[in-house]
Design a protein around this nucleic acid. Sequence first.
RNA 1: CGGGGAGUAGCGCAGUGGUAGCGCACCUGCUUUGGGAGCAGGAGGUCGGGGGUUCGAAACCCCCCUCCCCGACCA
Length: 569
Amino acid sequence: MSRLLLRTLREAPADAEAASHRLLVRAGYIRRTSSGVYAFLPLGRRVLANVERLVREELGGAGVQEILLPALQPRELWEASGRISVYEDILFGLEGRGGRMVLGPTHEELATVTVSADVESWRDLPVSVYQVQTKFRDEARPRFGLLRGREFLMADAYSFDADEASMAASYERIHAAVGRVFDRCGVQYRAVEADSGGMGGSVSHEIMVPSPIGEDHFAHCAACGWAANVETAAAGARDPAADSAGPSGPGGAAEEMVLHHTPGAPGIEAVVEHFQDQGLTAKGMLKCIALLDAHGGVVLALVPGDREVLVSRAAPGGRTFEEADFIAHPELVKGYIGPMGMLEKGIRVVADPSVGRPGAWVTGANRADHHVSGAVAGRDFQVGEWVSIATISAGDPCPACGGPVELIRSVEAAHTFQLGRRYSDVLPGAVFTDESGAEAPFWMGCYGIGVSRLVAIVAEATHDDAGLSWPLALAPYAVHLISLGTDPEVLEASEALYGDLAGAGTSVLWDDRPVRAGVKFADADLIGIPAQVLVGARGLAGGVVEVKIRATGERSEVAPGELAAALPL
RNA sequence: CGGGGAGUAGCGCAGUGGUAGCGCACCUGCUUUGGGAGCAGGAGGUCGGGGGUUCGAAACCCCCCUCCCCGACCA
């Protein structure tokens, strides 16, 4: 340890917010070099290598073959797959001699063309590959140290199959292997239904680790175990009485709609404020969101004012209106949209079932600075399609069993996708010859594990006030051997123990520094190696050394000869 | 991208126009030595960069860069 590139800090950098970030920096595992970019120092590198080892053992054990794709990718490949527009904002671009290049934010395109070059026949399938690679994403806001960086390490796997059923089987097998990586890290996690987002495909799951610093939420049903990311989970059918029970505000019992002048009040909050003395809450507002579907058609999505619209359900492949879209569609007045007459104008009106509850709504009047009250579905406006498009909230019924769901803050640790033919359909040569002799595109899956992120997740989950506390599987060393004092007898005994342990294949960090005991204790707790072995003159006089288990603080005294048996290895 | 804040020694910070400082860390010596020691001495700075105001700028003004926070966005 006296020669290790390591300096612990008593104070954390001011910019470190998360405990994992502060401690990893203080304990000398990582150091920031620019926003969202970190250097791994010797201790950090060893933890990272341990995550990689688990990944290799589990994915390799599931029959996935390790490859290494370039980080440097031709921009053309992204243009060919059509993902350039989705990823443009976060791509690091470069000018190269051979044309424009990008630093890969992910590797679906490259994996597809690389594997397809060597797979010609259905006889070669299924096949799957993985790599552990640095990804580059110019994140708008890097955060929490290793948790969200602009450069980070990911293990990404890709499966190739001849048909959909086979793809699903590969997906099951590899998804299970991904789960085992997390089992071995000792973190609590849950696989939840997820949105395919920019990746494409249909079925998708995220491995979510509950954490107070998580940036995502998932909905979870304790009764049946159903779980889904709130970005994809639609609220289940609710008791209409529950939704209409709240005050519906002005015009609640009106026979007809009433026009109100509501100057400068776009948005739910402003309108609720305007009518607050009449008891209006967001639940009594009808939220109307203008969307463009995948073909450029206008969709008006209706949900109660206290909910958000799930764009991926209301208009699959579509997006919300931007400024230019409002200019192109003057009948939709930004901030004052109402559903009245929209269906008749040929606009698709999609409403969440909860919009059909009894009672009237307050909503936009399709006229600047005006809202209406007393709007009733079926009487004052028509709905074309009833689809569950409202976000789920805590307490909503579970879509699977009807029990109440809870929302859990969490970190996305891995994400897996059944991609189908999203990439093989559009990239050149991503075909094989099937049993009938015809050319067919691959059925693919992809699987990403945030390797460097996992280091932060585990640090976050296992630390205490004194510092880090690694599970054995990820610890930079298994044993922290601490020599107390400079007594030659102590150093001699320490060196002998070091030799015994190392000889038996145990990784040992030996604190042979000529510093005071207190400094060593504090550093050892900060660094968080699972077992500490204390060698001091006091113990040696009685023929023993001390063992301290970092996670529990449990201490015991053993004879040096019996040390190996006393350690949790 | 919008709003807010911050850049002074490796880390944490003070410094309202007149010789650039403190704590931790670092180097030397002595004492100390089982939970972040004490004393003495020492080294380390383009005060983020550029321009301006001034006899004089770390400080005041302008531009730029970097970093952080809230939001928007996002496998």
